[in-house]
Design a protein around this nucleic acid. Structure first.
Lengths: 134, 134
DNA sequence: TCGCTTACGATAACAGTTCCTATTATACGG
DNA sequence: CCGTATAATAGGAACTGTTATCGTAAGCGA
């Protein structure tokens, strides 16, 4: 049973490396830009394709926040994010103990709850600094 | 100071009526379809334009969920939603007492937290029924 | 009624993402 | 080490949801 055979191409390796290098939850085009230093003529489609396949394999996580663009994370377990409404940057908010939230939501709605995410929106320290100096 | 003068046009009236009629958090094109029964040659741009202006006035709420499309809500106060990963439907999860969450997130990240939302993902009772009968 | 503003419908533009196709390159069996 | 099957690639077209543009129509105050 060949199942799925995945080749570790230079492009895939580069994308994964760049994603693991940062903690900034980059977008696909962020990664495209970063990877082009190593693979100058990689195509944006390749970046998308590999991000998609790696997230379906559970190697990476894609973060579907309220913003316009999808973002990606090499950390598969973290679940809570905070997004800057000025620059779109996404950071983590560490904390656990939320199973009771899902039970509450399930009881209240009758849904079978598969997962949940908490997203805070605010101004990140860097943007706040810039706003104050304006 | 004229500030903003907003005319209650038939189109705007129709959009707002349709939105208030349902609790299903429709998308812009859902509303476009619904409104066309009353305004047969309304344009999609008009729907978007009015949803945007009404949400900026605080008359309605737009829900920027993880799905691809924006959704809208005539209820301005509700903050917690649950989304069906099969059909995209969005329902409310009622509950309050979350200010401490924002304080926790702010302490943990240094952001100035402006708002937050909790989104659960699951299977709604109707889809679950269909899945079972397959 | 006149003139100004707001809104309209139609359609083009746009951004992010996905899809398509011919070509390349990788893993694997011999 | 080579040949072959096939996954993956680059490049670009297509698609989707949304926003902007433009010329026209309609409501409102003077």
């Amino acid at each position: 049973m060949s199942s799925e055979s995945f080749r570790l191409t230079p492009q895939r390796r580069a994308i994964l490396d760049e994603l693991r290098k940062v903690t900034s939850h980059p977008t696909a085009s962020d990664l495209y830009e970063a990877v082009r230093a190593r693979c100058p003529n990689i195509s944006l489609g390749t970046v998308y394709r590999n991000l998609d396949s790696m997230s379906r394999q559970g190697i990476i996580q894609c973060i579907d926040t309220a913003g316009r663009q999808m973002r990606f994370d090499a950390e598969v377990n973290a679940h809570y994010h905070i997004r800057c409404v000025e620059c779109g940057r996404v950071d983590d908010v560490a904390d656990e103990t939320w199973e009771k939230l899902e039970r509450m939501a399930s009881d209240a709605t009758g849904y079978e709850v598969l997962s949940h995410s908490v997203e805070f929106a605010g101004i990140c320290p860097r943007c706040r600094g810039q706003a104050e100096s304006r």
